[in-house]
């Protein structure tokens, strides 16, 4: 299996981090980064990671189903994650989630027909003091209002990149 030079370089770094007889440690980091490139964790990827880390495909598969970020089904180009855990719940996280589902006509872990946007109701994402929070791919959005969510979803559906959408700013650097 071939990957981009950037991902290959990353894999090389991963494998160098751990003792020579502990390559298995690289399984999870490899999967997390590889799925961004391959869009999903395929059987081919499982076998490739198994080979590179010196474990069996089953040992990789055991891991895939355990971690909620690892996915065998492709997600949208923009994966919109709405937190509804307690801190967000108290300040409207659930309403944001319902709004997103309603607006896109899709539900939890579903992807829009054009493949641009997928939705996931997620557990606490570590933005409790700046709730309600939303993540688009790996970018955080704090203190999200229903109006901002509307703009964000409209913009993404219209083919814009998140950074091109006015009034909605990611917070992380």
């Amino acid at each position: 299996m071939t990957f981009s030079p950037e991902l290959e370089a990353r894999f090389e770094k991963f494998l160098a981090k751990y003792p020579a007889d502990r390559k298995r440690s690289a399984v999870i980091p490899m999967l997390v980064y590889a799925q961004d490139e391959t869009e999903a964790i395929t059987q081919e990827l499982i076998e490739e990671v198994a080979k590179r880390c010196g474990v069996t495909p089953l040992q990789v598969d055991e891991v895939v189903g355990f971690y909620s970020m690892l996915h065998k089904k492709p997600q949208g180009k923009y994966h919109v994650q709405v937190c509804t855990n307690i801190s967000c719940l108290l300040v409207g996280g659930e309403e944001l989630w319902n709004q997103a589902c309603h607006k896109l006509g899709i539900g939890h872990k579903q992807t829009s027909a054009d493949g641009r946007v997928s939705l996931e109701e997620v557990e606490c994402m570590g933005a409790c003091s700046w709730a309600p929070a939303v993540q688009v791919n790996y970018d955080f959005y704090h203190f999200v209002t229903p109006g901002q969510l509307d703009k964000l979803l409209d913009g993404l559906a219209a083919g814009k990149k998140p950074e091109e959408i006015a009034d909605v700013k990611k917070v992380s650097c």
Binding site: P57, Q59, D61, F66, Y67
Partner: peptide, 20 residues
């Protein structure tokens, strides 16, 4: 032989055979 493993998490956990 290590032909059996555990997949998924929590109440959805299942035993899985080595060839999927």
């Amino acid at each position: 032989v290590s032909a059996l493993g555990v997949i998924n998490r929590g109440a959805q956990s299942l035993i899985s055979p080595n060839m999927g």
